[in-house]
């Protein structure tokens, strides 16, 4: 398998993941499912970043017994993804906290219903 084909494979796979995630995010009517789509999307982006740093036949950028391998992958995208993963879990935690509280106060996590309530809340407030 040529490196070119392999890198295309990763590009296509990450594009597919992002697309599936985005589709889920946009089309889901249940909040938790939309959030699941978000995590898939982030996974796709992470895959793309790792594949950017990948070199055919390269070793991880870690010295063994004080000796670095001759050919190493690029460490920068890895550092970026570590950051992105932690950011992702933080945002997900906040989103789930919001969802939990929303469920406690509104009793539903169905987005169309919540949207209708939001609209009527706006006009009710106006009338007052």
């Amino acid at each position: 398998m040529t490196p070119d084909l392999l890198s295309h494979l990763f590009s296509i796979a990450s594009a597919a993941l992002v697309a599936i995630g985005l589709f889920m995010l946009v089309r889901s009517h249940y909040l938790l499912r939309a959030l699941l789509g978000l995590t898939l999307m982030e996974a796709g982006v992470n895959l793309f970043l790792v594949s950017v740093g990948y070199r055919e036949g390269a070793a991880p950028p870690i010295a063994i017994d004080g000796q670095l391998p001759a050919v190493m992958v690029d460490p920068i995208p890895q550092a970026l993804i570590l950051t992105a993963i932690v950011i992702g879990v933080g945002v997900l935690g906040l989103a789930l906290a919001l969802a939990l509280r929303l469920h406690q106060s509104e009793g539903t996590l169905w987005l169309p219903r919540l949207r209708r309530r939001a609209q009527s809340a706006c006009s009710k407030e106006d009338a007052a």
């Binding site: 992002v18 985005l22 995010l25 978000l38 796709g44 992105a84 945002v91 509104e106």
Partner: peptide, 23 residues
């Protein structure tokens, strides 16, 4: 409740946007 919905709306849009920007 309803401000939480606004926040979730903002979060969904913004987080998806961030993922695309990172791409």
């Amino acid at each position: 409740g309803i401000q939480l919905y606004a926040s979730i709306r903002l979060l969904l849009f913004s987080a998806a946007g961030s993922a695309l920007a990172l791409l």
